[in-house]
Design a protein around this nucleic acid. Structure first.
Length: 494
RNA sequence: GGUCGCGUGGCCGAGUGGCUAGGCAGAGGUCUGCAAAACCUUUUACGGCGGUUCGAAUCCGCCCGUGACCUCCA
């Protein structure tokens, strides 16, 4: 992160708002404000949730590596999302709570804990701030008041709605998603219980709570709860200011969620809050989006345990992370056992290469251009976080490193140091991969394995192959993979 | 129906006007007591039809297929 700045190009980000690649320039360097839509904690996180988490974790890690001071805000949505299949729009959290006879906040806590655990398993760094919607009711109410004061909202029967048509007269509603308001007005299906709205495109800022509704807060409009899109506007403004650099989330949130966020912020401040909008694409399964409503999702816990009818085996969290990073974030990524298994093998290869770098001895000459490799990796990342391109260069390096470990390629001490540092930097610090843990008490077990393999080595030397093979076969049965290398051995717990 | 996107070899997945992406799988080989690993070589591509161009997977048009959003959704 120090001396190569001259060779490094700028980070390019695809901005959904402009539909173009743009050079990233923060508003107040070296500070960067990053807001990402987090999970709705009414169910277990699935493979689809891993995608934005890992995508923006990569961005977070890379921005920090580039020397930016990043405040990364990722919210927890624990109130306010209405469910369309319920008769009069029931809070999702509430519905689940009733089903399981739990306090709503108990459900929230349960799934939040699970989410954190899964993120930790995926080596996703915690954000700088993780605000809960339920903890920012006052801020949301204040925002509703501001919008009312600006006359972009109206109250009806204890609920407050955003007046989209009025807003559209002065500002353009739909510029992020490319929607044409006139089409929306005529096309939107009529939903039940929406008579209160002046127009079907209006959306709730504050919703009156029915008597049976448990999650409710007092307000000047009566008891209720905040609308669908308000929390992100209120919390991003609180922690990142009226204007900030990057807002991220899944493509499925583009409309209406992010469109409404823009409207809310512009209504309050008169200007756009976000400079760069970034949207990750979906994980698909058999070409279909993996999602709750389609019921075709596989939870992360199921992935890790291999317990799902579609799974042929368990997949290690690092396999999942690597699998996701092997696709550029704006492409769809199709799930299949074959693809996961390919990712698993590739990942393992990369990891054994990391270990082999240590075994290379420096030589007088370098037979490979390390600097070029480093530059290509940066170029990949700078090109809208093109992690697959970067990974392809890592595999190129892996081939050369493995050859060097065999003595077929050489590096000077300086190049070797540079290669080692950058390979580790790219793999661990930026891609956020980590070695799979080698069993629980690797101290004792590892020592025993080493001892056995030393005995096997001796057996081989006196050509006692029966003993040597027996040791190897028995270790294999215990899940220890043995590989003979020049003048010694390597082993792994698989 | 409206808006936006995608279609690359057995699978996943980059590229987006001329230069081998990469991984996994397949085939052959080197190494090895054997095996594994590693390395080397190698087969299979750009949905279809036209057009632009010296040259297109890459640009344009049409067609076909497919997906996302339009309702909570990462």
């Amino acid at each position: 992160m120090q001396e190569q700045n001259n060779t490094r190009k700028k980070l390019i980000i695809y901005n959904t708002l402009s539909r173009e690649r743009e050079e990233f320039n923060p508003i107040n360097p070296p500070h960067v404000g990053l807001y990402v839509c987090g999970p709705t904690v009414y169910g277990e996180a699935h493979l689809g949730h891993a995608r934005p988490a890992i995508t923006f974790d990569l961005l977070f890690r890379y921005l920090r590596h580039l020397g930016y001071k990043v405040r990364y805000v990722r919210n927890i949505t624990d109130v306010g999302h209405l469910e369309s299949d319920a008769d009069e729009g029931e809070d999702k959290i509430l519905k689940k709570a009733r089903l399981e006879q739990l306090e709503p906040m108990e459900v929230v806590q349960h799934y939040t804990n699970l989410y954190h655990k899964n993120m930790d398993q995926l080596n996703v760094l915690p954000p700088s701030i993780e605000p809960h919607a339920s903890g920012h009711i006052i801020e949301q109410q204040q925002m509703v008041e501001k919008i009312l004061k600006k006359k972009y909202a109206y109250e009806k029967n204890g609920s407050v709605y955003f007046d989209v048509l009025r807003y559209h007269k002065k500002h353009k509603y739909g510029k992020l998603s490319g929607r044409v308001l006139e089409d929306l007005v005529t096309n939107t299906r009529s939903l039940e219980g929406q008579d209160e709205k002046r127009n079907n495109v209006d959306f709730a800022l504050w919703k009156k709570a029915e008597p049976t509704h448990l999650m409710r807060w007092p307000s000047k409009w009566g008891e209720g709860f905040p609308g669908w899109h308000l929390e992100c506007s209120a919390m991003s403004m609180k922690y990142l200011g009226e204007q900030f650099d990057i807002h991220g989330g899944g493509m499925d949130l583009l409309f209406p969620h992010h469109e409404c966020e823009i409207a809310q912020s512009v209504a309050v401040t008169g200007r756009d809050a976000v400079r760069y909008w970034m949207h990750n694409n979906m994980v698909t399964i058999n070409g279909r989006k993996m999602g709750k409503s389609l019921g075709n999702f596989i939870t992360l816990n199921e992935m890790f345990a291999g317990k799902h009818e579609l799974l042929e085996q368990p997949y290690h969290p690092m396999t999942i992370r690597f699998f996701i990073l092997q696709a550029q974030y704006r492409s769809t990524l199709d799930f299949s056992n074959e693809a996961l298994q390919a990712a698993e093998k590739g990942f393992d290869r990369l990891m054994s290469t990391v270990e082999r770098i240590e075994k290379i001895s420096p030589a007088e000459k370098s037979t490979w251009d390390v600097k070029d490799f480093i530059n290509k990796c940066y170029e990949g990342l700078n090109d809208d976080l093109n992690s697959p391109v970067m990974i392809s260069h890592l595999f190129d390096a892996a081939r050369v490193i493995n050859s060097a470990a065999d003595g077929k390629e050489t590096f000077t001490a300086g190049d070797l140091e540079k290669l080692k540092n950058h390979f580790n930097l790219f793999v661990f610090d930026i891609l956020g991969l980590q070695q799979k843990e080698k069993g629980e008490d690797s101290g004792l077990a590892g020592g025993l394995v080493e001892l056995l393999l030393k005995l096997r080595q001796e057996a081989k030397e006196r050509k006692d192959f029966a003993t040597a093979d027996e040791i190897r076969d028995e270790l294999n049965k215990l899940g220890v993979e043995v590989r003979d290398v020049k003048g010694g051995f390597e082993w792994d717990i698989v």
